[in-house]
Amino acid sequence: MIKSDLDLKLLEKCAGCGACFSICPSCITIPGYDPREVIKDILAGEFEKWLESKHIWQCLECHYCLEMCYQHYGFENAMTALRTIATKRGKFPPQVKRGWDMFAKSSRLGDPAMPARKKLGLPEPKKSGKDEFLKLHELVLKAREAENEKKTGTDDE
């Protein structure tokens, strides 16, 4: 599963480099946050133990490592891959779950604050694309279900 998300060749080079540790804001400020450890474990096939860890959510997706990296790779790729697997297994911080649920229901992460808009003299907000969005979401889910049915029994990865 993790192989399909990550380029292991690049990751191996990353494990031998580690330079980003000194510029990553989370590495500098959060005790215990160290993607180098995570990457070592991924290469050793032991990524499972990180799926429940709060550390994989401490990557800020600030893309600093990506920009500094000589292979335009970045620590963040490893962290993103683990977060993706964790969420597929239903393991996410409560706020992420709430955010996703609101998005899936309303196509937004919050509705325009109407009384405040009025006070400020702002115009009516434009129409949202909620209906189209809901339809697209349904189509994506259906296609995925069909895909999974096709796969069942032949591939459990």
Binding site: E61, G99, F103, K126, K127, G129, E132
Partner: peptide, 11 residues
Amino acid sequence: DGFTCCPEKSL
């Protein structure tokens, strides 16, 4: 008309 959430990456 018609914009939705961009959507937000981390969430």
